[in-house]
Design a protein around this nucleic acid. Structure first.
Lengths: 345, 345
DNA sequence: CTGAAAGCGCTTACAG
DNA sequence: CTGAAAGCGCTTACAG
């Protein structure tokens, strides 16, 4: 549903020309007084400013950008704003963007279908750049992203390398390995991995590092379960799948905290398991809920601030560069020990 | 820090004129084939389209909007994206905006100071409209909002009536009253209200309705505490303030769920209180955590979808109208009973 | 249905 | 330092 816009507004927008008339100067003069660093004499600047406040004039940024061939608009495309980690990421991103004199245009697409429809539209808008946090983006869409001229960087998960997209993420692979070491050191033996949705374009290095280290250590093979989505409820369902039989794992590494929390709650409340004695649960992200009283979740914390700062610095360089090349930036994660893994003996 | 933009990009943007040349038609023709409902013969449309895909042409929406005198850009200004309710609101808002063919420009300002700096900037950007969810916005800023020509609607909380701003919110006053009735019916006697930050421009009708009904019923006067911010930690601190002495309340109504959850956790874990037997806790919003296992929080649910749909429908009408008048829309809240208030006897 | 022209509001070489 | 002019990429009366 698109509304019609009625152009008969009574008050016409006051324009630079109006100010020029009022101040008795040329349009160029008023433009100059509003572009930092341009050369205007204090006298004319003063007259312009005076006229401008009198008329309530403000330069029209959109029009400005059409002349300058860039709009200082960068998009943020997100598929799961319901996940607190992404909400925090968007917050940091828009702050960092503001500091770089960009504005953040937010696009939300919850399903692969919406993603498929929306991406071409976004590209059409010809933003200066696009930041993507949508691990469930279909491959075809990633291809159109790779083919476009507008700089794109993925955040939160590395894009599969063959895609040729820039990304900034946490070193998931290394963190996955470290989680195994922690678990083994604390005496757990039957490890399991709970992955999120398939994530056509996002790598799966969290689980891979985990599995790799398990193999190196010649531990019994891990059980893999995969949640259909990253939600509290899905975490609970995974617990049902994993904990229902006798040979259940004694430690599970979850792809993210919301899954972990859902898992934890049914492990305790439906199966009466004692965490961390009967079962260890470790998450990923360190969302606020992880440190709340009932959870005290041991998890790997992503360096959110650094990652988001990096992401906008990367995209801002790509925007400024004449021939941007895809880059990937990996920042180290850090295990935060709380109460869902046994303490050292 | 502002990055320089290097304009020497090798590939020039392909423009409508390029397509016109390639197709052997006028620029008007290509413009027409890209504006729905314009009159072009199938033949020329076809040639244009063919040339367009060959060259990879896409109309430049920003330039388009300068001619059309509106950009289809509406801002969302938010001060607490860390609160899940606001995150969900932004999600719905951006979806609804997309459906109305608007784009959402996101602004984040965590402090009154940032708000004060950012609002004039936003207005300068001359967006078509602005949606504000920032109860902690200083009064002066609200005044500049009221004085501007760009349509503005506040969401989530009603703006104080004297401000002359449009808003859509839940009927907080009524819900506050209903919470008292519920609590009294279930046998609680010493009621308390835990408010959030002062909120210079947001009304305080949640607490007022609550207090009003308490007076009507001639119950003992309520205790009022006010958290410095809406956070889990602040909720915990409020519990310390309220539960430390003998004459503690036996029911507390919290301004929102994140406060309520923080309160609940320290009430149980630090004070060993049995909720709901020793103490009732009711929240506001119905964020996802409210229905999680450890909480099962009784809370008043705001009709999020309806509110956000209403908000964008309101602003889109104001954008379309030649003389928009401030309107306020109140939707009913609904108490969701879970486990933090005793069941009926 | 179609094109030539003028315009959106602003900026930026170009002369002076 | 300043103005007249041309331009950003697109659209929309105006004629035909």
């Amino acid at each position: 549903m698109v509304d019609m816009v009625d152009d008969d507004k009574l008050e016409r927008r006051v324009t630079g020309a109006d100010v020029a008339n009022a101040a008795g100067v040329s349009p160029s003069a008023v433009s100059r007084t509003f572009t930092p660093g341009a050369s205007v004499s204090p006298a004319t600047r003063d007259r312009v400013l005076r006229a401008a406040v009198a008329l309530g004039y403000r330069p029209h940024f959109i029009a400005r950008s059409s002349r300058e061939r860039h709009g200082n608009l960068v998009g943020i495309l997100i598929s799961d704003l319901g996940n607190p980690w992404y909400a925090m990421a968007v917050q940091r991103l828009s702050q960092a963007l503001q500091e770089h004199a960009f504005h953040a245009v937010l696009f939300d697409a919850n399903t692969p279908d919406m993603l498929t429809r929306i991406v071409p539209l976004i590209l059409q808008y010809q933003l200066d750049g696009l930041l993507i946090g949508a691990p469930d983006m279909p491959l075809i869409v990633a291809d159109v992203c790779a083919g476009t001229a507008t700089p794109i960087v993925m955040f939160g998960r590395l894009s599969k390398p063959e895609l040729g997209l820039s990304s900034v993420a946490c070193d998931d692979h290394q963190s996955g390995r470290e989680v195994v070491d922690l678990l083994v050191e604390r005496g757990y033996q039957r490890l399991a991995y709970l992955g999120g949705e398939a994530g056509p374009i996002a790598d799966t290095r969290r689980g891979e590092g985990f599995a790799e280290r398990v193999r190196e250590l010649r531990l019994p093979p891990i059980t893999n379960v995969s949640a259909s989505e990253s939600s509290y409820a899905a975490g609970g369902r995974a617990a049902d799948a994993l904990l229902g039989h006798a040979q259940r794992p004694d430690a599970v590494f979850c792809q993210n905290d919301v899954l972990a929390i859902g898992f934890l709650d049914v492990a305790r409340n439906r199966y009466g398991l004692n965490v961390p004695d009967d079962l260890a649960v470790v998450g990923f992200d360190d969302i606020p809920a992880a440190s709340q009283f009932p959870y005290q979740l041991t998890t790997v914390q992503q360096p959110l601030d650094a990652m988001m700062t990096e992401a906008v610095s990367l995209i801002s360089h790509q925007i400024a560069s004449s021939a941007p090349v895809p880059e990937t930036r990996l920042l180290p994660g850090r295990i935060i020990e709380r109460q869902t893994v046994r303490s050292p003996v």
